[in-house]
């Protein structure tokens, strides 16, 4: 564990929360830091929509996004179990769990993952989602890393309520709805930018995020400006 990086991460997350705040950007930062700091090979965040169905809100890479989707579609896997039980699920070696999650275990191996840890995102009595850490190599999870990962998951949960809102209601499922819509908006913008500059979706996301950071703007505001062609956005992806 790199303590300096840990401190830097919490400062960075706190900064994001205080400034004009974009949930999708924040969750992606969270997954990236889980990879950089906690020794995870990949990380993903799932949030429940208003029907209680999980949606992939952020993933550190495409492999893990597909694997998270796979769990949702097949209705099996550690992340779903963690979400439903509201408690952590830790699997140091996925090979031992082929009976428990036959389809997921096989799929995870295909994607090159050997171990997984799923941590609940709880808000008082309500479980709103899960943070998932994947590792390529099987083996026990670092006992120091786990509470830190849980703390990151808790910060992410609190952040849901932090979202800037101009409306009267602060109902949680409305917040989630806004977050989901912001995700759609950013994906639309990624598609437009990727096609325009002949780059892939990940490069498009990075370009949008760098632009937002460099200009001190919310990711979803930049995404909307791009889609609506309301601004030149000079220097974006060039």
């Amino acid at each position: 564990m790199n303590e300096r990086l840990l401190a830097k991460t919490f400062v960075e997350l706190a900064d994001t929360l205080v400034a004009d705040f974009d949930l999708i950007d924040f969750l992606r930062l969270l997954t990236d830091r889980c990879v950089g700091m906690l020794g995870a090979s990949a990380a993903g965040v799932l949030l429940a929509d208003r029907d209680g169905e999980l949606r992939v809100m952020a993933a550190s890479d495409e492999q893990v996004r597909l694997l998270e989707l796979f769990q949702i579609q097949n209705d099996e896997g550690p992340c779903l179990e963690c979400f439903r039980a509201g408690s952590p699920v830790t699997v140091p070696d996925l090979l031992t769990e082929t009976a428990r999650w036959p389809r997921f275990a096989a799929q995870a191996r295909l994607h090159g993952f050997g171990a997984v840890q799923a941590l609940p995102m709880r808000l008082r009595d309500e479980v709103v989602g899960a943070l998932n850490l994947f590792r390529t190599a099987p083996g026990p999870f670092d006992p120091v890393g786990t509470p830190i990962a849980q703390a990151l998951a808790d910060v992410a949960t609190i952040s849901l309520l932090q979202q800037r809102s101009t409306h009267r209601s602060t109902v949680l499922n409305e917040q989630l709805q806004t977050a989901l819509n912001s995700r759609v908006l950013i994906e639309q913008a990624k598609g437009k930018l990727a096609e325009r500059h002949n780059i892939d979706m990940e490069q498009a996301f990075t370009a949008l995020r760098s632009y937002a950071r460099a200009h001190n703007r919310r990711l979803s505001d930049v995404a909307r400006a791009l889609i609506d062609d309301t601004e030149p956005l000079a220097g974006l992806a060039s």
Partner: peptide, 23 residues
């Protein structure tokens, strides 16, 4: 209807460029 996939949104964004139309 109930299905959300990132690809649908990305494809929509791609089409704005290929077709030269709004979102």
């Amino acid at each position: 209807l109930g299905e959300y996939r990132a690809e649908i949104s990305q494809a929509t964004g791609i089409l704005t460029v290929q077709l030269g139309v709004g979102i």
